[in-house]
């Protein structure tokens, strides 16, 4: 089972997680920029984080045979903090980078005017940089939030076919599917979706344009939930090909809209300037 986790926050996870993910079949992932749990107080805090998503984190992933791309954005929650909003001006130069395959996570948290502005501005950035957008749907007042999100996307210059609506569930999937957006589901131990309900939705709404992610972060989450969904699909009678569509080909198709997704061998890793032998020593120098 080959797995592409289209939404996971690896900088919050351990090296053991990378190893377990590789063993479970994860070969590629996208890490969207998000809230760190602790509020940021300045723009520089975002820049160091973006640099990590473009530098150290892909390196760490490659050490475990996993290809790492990222999505960059001002997240919805911090779009409300005037100390953070000026990062929007810095995004232009970051969105040019090779391993950036989407603008994200953008969207609504509390549905404030500041969030309206940040969402519209960043949908336009996606247009300018020919990138798709990963749009988070709010956890509170979700149904209204999805409706409003779809309205804003429709008012933007970004076609719905280049938008992934994430964190969907039973109450929001129909509206999202009608919108023409790609459909993202986050599978969690306690909240959001679980694998049994996910299989039920796949039966009801089909596998087309559906992406399943672990959205694992610093909270109670599980980076192997993608694998668990694949197993639950097989147990329910879905074919290997259908599992591959949901867990690999759909995320590949969505992020390929960027024109930058690269799942091939990366010459920059170990085979340049002689073979860099991993000596088994921890890189603690």
């Amino acid at each position: 089972m080959r797995i592409f986790d289209p939404h996971i926050h690896m900088s919050s996870r351990t090296t053991d997680d990378y190893r377990a993910m590789r063993d479970a079949g994860v070969r590629a992932l996208v890490e969207p920029a998000f809230w760190l749990g602790q509020p940021r107080t300045n723009v520089g805090s975002f820049l160091d984080y973006f640099d990590a998503l473009l530098g150290w984190e892909p390196y760490r992933a490659a050490e475990h045979g996993i290809t790492h791309h990222c999505a960059l954005a001002l997240n919805p929650k911090e779009a409300n903090d005037p100390r953070c909003v000026p990062v929007l001006a810095e995004l232009d130069r970051y969105l040019r980078k090779d391993s950036v395959v989407a603008v994200g996570e953008i969207g609504y948290d509390s549905m404030t005017p500041a969030e309206d502005e940040a969402l519209a501005a960043q949908l336009q950035l996606a247009v300018d940089h020919e990138l798709p957008a990963l749009v988070h749907t709010p956890h509170r007042d979700k149904v209204a939030g999805v409706t409003r999100t779809v309205d804003v996307v429709r008012e933007s210059a970004l076609p719905t076919e280049r938008v992934l609506l994430d964190h969907l569930n039973e109450t929001t999937v129909a509206a999202a599917k009608d919108s023409g957006c790609w459909l993202g589901f986050s599978v969690y131990p306690d909240t959001k979706m679980d694998e049994t309900r996910m299989v039920r939705l796949l039966r009801e709404y089909g596998t087309e344009k559906v992406l399943v992610n672990s959205a694992a972060d610093w909270g109670n989450s599980d980076p192997l939930k993608t694998r668990r969904v694949g197993e639950a699909m097989l147990a329910d009678g879905f074919s290997d090909d259908e599992v591959d569509l949901v867990l690999w080909r759909n995320p590949v198709a969505f992020y390929s809209l960027s024109g930058r997704l690269d799942l091939g061998e990366r010459p920059e890793r170990d085979d340049y300037a002689g073979n860099v032998l991993r000596r088994g020593a921890p890189a603690d120098s």
Binding site: R96, P267, D271, Y272, A273
Partner: peptide, 25 residues
């Protein structure tokens, strides 16, 4: 400088046959 930014997308990710250097480098 904009060419510098997009070099990988222009020349690809392959490595050069003799020097072994990535083409974009």
């Amino acid at each position: 400088e904009s060419s510098f930014a997009v070099a990988t997308r222009r020349v690809g990710r392959g490595a050069l046959p003799v020097s072994g250097m990535p083409a974009a480098d």
